[in-house]
């Protein structure tokens, strides 16, 4: 789910940026620094949308750098266990399939794909029901439930399932 939240950060600014454009410099450095980053607590920072408050700068002893505490609003994407969302399939293999929902990758293992769907290899590997009515392949859109998340330094990785009511393919690229 996407959220609009307020975060805080202490920004260090080199003295060469001091002057009329100090604020602009500070804001553009903030965007460069935080956009695209990911933390386990807040998820992926997608975009800074506004600055709430810039505190008084504090000159650091020994260097000329000044530290500014900044409160800023941003759009973040944070997946939660138990959350249901839509994603598109990026890769299918006999272990299961990978899907993407925004910046996050979700793996659905073949144990978590309904039992009546079987893996078909070929140049377009896919999972298909025995009557061929439902097919999951690259670029299919699926609705899935996140059942686990793993956080590492720069990424959040999710495990999902489509073995539940109202989950599964919502749009097949071949029939659409």
């Amino acid at each position: 789910m996407f959220f609009h939240i307020v975060l805080e950060r202490n920004m260090q600014l080199h003295p060469r940026y001091f002057g009329r454009n100090l604020r602009d410099n500070l804001v553009s450095k903030l965007m460069k620094d935080v956009e695209g980053t990911c933390s386990g607590r807040h998820g992926f920072v997608v975009a800074v949308t506004g600055i709430e408050h810039i505190g008084k700068g504090l000159i650091r002893d020994g260097t000329g750098f000044v530290t500014f505490p900044i409160k800023y609003q941003c759009v973040v994407f944070r997946p939660f266990k138990g959350e249901i969302l839509e994603a598109f399939v990026t890769m299918v293999n006999k272990m299961g399939f990978f899907a993407e929902a925004g910046p996050v990758q979700i793996f659905v293992s073949n144990h978590l794909i309904p039992d009546d769907m079987e893996f078909q290899s070929g140049d377009m590997p896919n999972y298909t029901t025995s009557d061929g009515s439902v097919k999951i392949q690259k670029d299919s859109e699926v609705r899935l439930k996140i059942i686990g998340t793993r956080v590492d330094a720069t990424e959040i990785f999710c495990i999902g399932t489509i073995k539940d009511d109202f989950l599964g393919v919502i749009n097949d690229p071949t029939t659409a």
């Binding site: 789910m1 959220f3 609009h4 944070r78 266990k81 138990g82 249901i84």
Partner: peptide, 20 residues
């Protein structure tokens, strides 16, 4: 945490959610 029971942490519960 479990979104199905709305356990998503205080911080996010109070935050503004955005639809796609």
């Amino acid at each position: 945490e479990n979104a199905a029971e709305l356990k998503i942490g205080d911080e996010f519960l109070k935050a503004k959610c955005l639809m796609n």
